[in-house]
């Protein structure tokens, strides 16, 4: 009886952990004769924080754009959230969230206007949007900033707001492209609290970063070099494999031999 109850609990965790939300088989993307992605293979599971690392120019952005349905692969099989990237790019876009440091919120619109705008794009009803807006502003303690322009907010607030807005339509997967650049070390860690929380709720997080300490916070990490995935494992195993104290050491060992490096 006792064992059975434990098993149910563990069993739930195991099945949810095994549910693949991203599957990539032999992804190839060429621009003319240049191979940006050279036979990538990986999968990402539900509720996982998946770190997608690589040097500038290694092919991360290309792969990320394909996974988000913004660009088509040259060849390979890919599904994101159960949708095929060739035939169901529109469904993918509707079922993922995306946030990048460069583009997220409209600077010359207020906090409330941005929320209304994104809610509109994702077809969220007015009633639902009002409720979501209330919860979101309360959680971020931004009630007083509701009618302020985004441009007037500190960068750390913008990042947290952009993350919450990207979750507004309740996507299964959220792509974060260097979400924490430029903020102070405390704000950067507060942002990771948000990421952990979303993952604990079953969201899948796909994140790129240049901060190697953040690579340690991921469940698994892939490192791209010259368009290929040079390593993919938990941070712990990667450190053992490359005999490094930390992820910075792993990264330097792998990326230093790069050909397309800059």
């Amino acid at each position: 009886m006792k064992i059975e109850s434990i098993n149910t609990k563990v069993g739930d965790a195991v099945t949810s952990a095994r549910e693949k939300v991203i599957e990539v088989r032999n992804l190839v993307k060429k621009f003319g004769s240049f191979v940006a992605n050279d036979h990538l293979n990986f999968e990402v599971y539900r509720g996982e924080i998946f770190g997608f690392l690589g040097a500038n120019g290694a092919g991360k952005t290309t792969a990320m754009r394909i996974l988000c349905g913004l660009s088509s692969p040259t060849s390979g099989e890919l599904s994101v959230g159960g949708f095929d990237v060739y035939r169901q790019a529109e469904q993918i876009k509707r079922n993922i969230g995306y946030m990048s440091q460069k583009f997220s919120l409209y600077e010359d619109m207020t906090v409330a206007e941005n929320i209304r705008f994104y809610a509109g794009i994702y077809g969220i009803s007015v009633k639902q949007r009002k409720e979501k807006e209330r919860v979101l502003l309360q959680k971020l303690q931004l009630e007083d900033a509701r009618d302020k322009l985004i441009a007037s907010l500190p960068l750390g607030w913008k990042q947290k707001l952009a993350f919450s807005v990207a979750l507004l339509h309740d996507p299964k997967i959220i792509f974060l492209d260097e979400p924490t650049g430029g903020v102070d070390p405390i704000t950067r860690r507060q942002f990771w609290d948000f990421i952990y929380e979303a993952a604990a709720e079953g969201k899948t997080i796909f994140v790129t970063t240049h901060y190697m300490d953040e690579a340690e916070y991921c469940d698994r990490v892939s490192i791209m070099v010259d368009g290929r995935i040079a390593a993919l494992d938990t941070p712990e195993k990667l450190k053992q494999q490359f005999l490094s104290e930390d992820m910075n050491g792993v990264f330097l060992k792998l990326a230093r031999g790069a050909q397309n490096g800059e």
Binding site: G182, H210, L252
Partner: peptide
């Protein structure tokens, strides 16, 4: 070095 990868930064 903002936005630059760890190798290029070094």
């Amino acid at each position: 070095t903002t936005g630059v990868d760890a190798v290029s930064r070094k």
